[in-house]
Amino acid sequence: MSRTAHSDRSTATPRSTTAPAPAAARLRVVEKTHDVPRKEVLGEGVLTGKQVTADLPDPEPLLRNLGRSVFEAMAGVRDIEQMARWVAPDVYSVLLQRVQHSARARRIRGKTVRRPYIVTKTCLWQSPRAGVVEATVLVDLGARVRAVAIRLEEFRGRWRAERFNVL
């Protein structure tokens, strides 16, 4: 080997110094994988993409609304009773406690109720089996971004949140 070839290799930048793709680019790729047609079924009934069942509505609008509504309720600008139809009774009681705690904290600090800046950024969901949807909704609150994990299950021909976790 000649000395010039060896010196060229030593001056080249190693491959490990390249920066990974930004998180936003990775999220876009994940969202694009959900573009599977709703009625397509593979193999022995394995559900893929956004397909859940043919008789239930698309869960994404409900997921986005529930993610936004929980923060509006904690801010005091939405009644928790408006969400009662869309959540299970045990989820409702936990949300009610959290809303009451937020109201008590506002009262102690002397803060008034203000409509917060809330934008639903991303809604990623999957259907592990028919009649079940597990989702993560990213909600931009202006000062910070929060995540809400929601599990929807079929209940009397519609979706209902059986699990709800604000991260």
Rank of each mutant, 00 (worst) to 15 (best):
residue 119 V to I: 12
residue 63 L to Q: 12
residue 79 D to H: 10
residue 166 V to Q: 01
residue 56 L to M: 04
residue 99 V to E: 04
residue 73 A to Q: 06
residue 32 K to H: 10
residue 105 A to Q: 11
residue 129 R to K: 11
residue 103 A to M: 10
residue 116 P to W: 11
residue 106 R to W: 03
residue 24 A to G: 05
residue 98 R to I: 02
residue 44 E to T: 07
residue 112 T to Q: 08
residue 161 A to T: 02
residue 167 L to E: 03
residue 62 L to Y: 01
residue 140 D to M: 05
residue 117 Y to E: 08
residue 81 E to H: 07
residue 98 R to W: 05
residue 90 D to W: 10
residue 6 H to N: 06
residue 52 V to W: 02
residue 20 P to I: 06
residue 146 R to V: 08
residue 135 A to I: 02
residue 96 L to R: 14
residue 120 T to G: 15
residue 24 A to M: 07
residue 18 T to M: 11
residue 72 E to N: 07
residue 18 T to F: 12
residue 62 L to R: 01
residue 150 I to E: 06
residue 51 Q to C: 11
residue 35 D to Q: 15
residue 125 W to T: 00
residue 115 R to V: 14
residue 75 A to D: 08
residue 113 V to H: 04
residue 148 V to Y: 05
residue 1 M to C: 06
residue 84 A to C: 05
residue 119 V to H: 14
residue 120 T to R: 12
residue 41 V to I: 15
residue 127 S to M: 07
residue 83 M to T: 13
residue 86 W to V: 01
residue 113 V to Q: 04
residue 22 P to R: 14
residue 6 H to W: 05
residue 137 V to E: 10
residue 144 R to K: 09
residue 153 E to P: 00
residue 31 E to S: 13
residue 33 T to G: 05
residue 60 E to V: 10
residue 111 K to L: 13
residue 114 R to T: 09
residue 33 T to C: 09
residue 122 T to C: 01
residue 16 S to M: 06
residue 106 R to D: 04
residue 49 G to Y: 10
residue 153 E to C: 08
residue 167 L to T: 02
residue 38 R to H: 09
residue 9 R to G: 15
residue 71 F to Q: 03
residue 108 I to K: 15
residue 35 D to T: 13
residue 38 R to P: 01
residue 63 L to T: 12
residue 45 G to Y: 02
residue 46 V to S: 10
residue 112 T to P: 00
residue 160 R to H: 00
residue 39 K to D: 13
residue 142 G to S: 06
residue 45 G to W: 02
residue 107 R to H: 07
residue 96 L to Y: 09
residue 149 A to Q: 11
residue 103 A to G: 06
residue 10 S to R: 14
residue 79 D to N: 12
residue 34 H to A: 15
residue 52 V to Q: 07
residue 22 P to V: 08
residue 73 A to T: 10
residue 104 R to Y: 06
residue 92 Y to I: 02
residue 11 T to I: 12
residue 36 V to S: 09
residue 26 R to C: 03
residue 114 R to W: 02
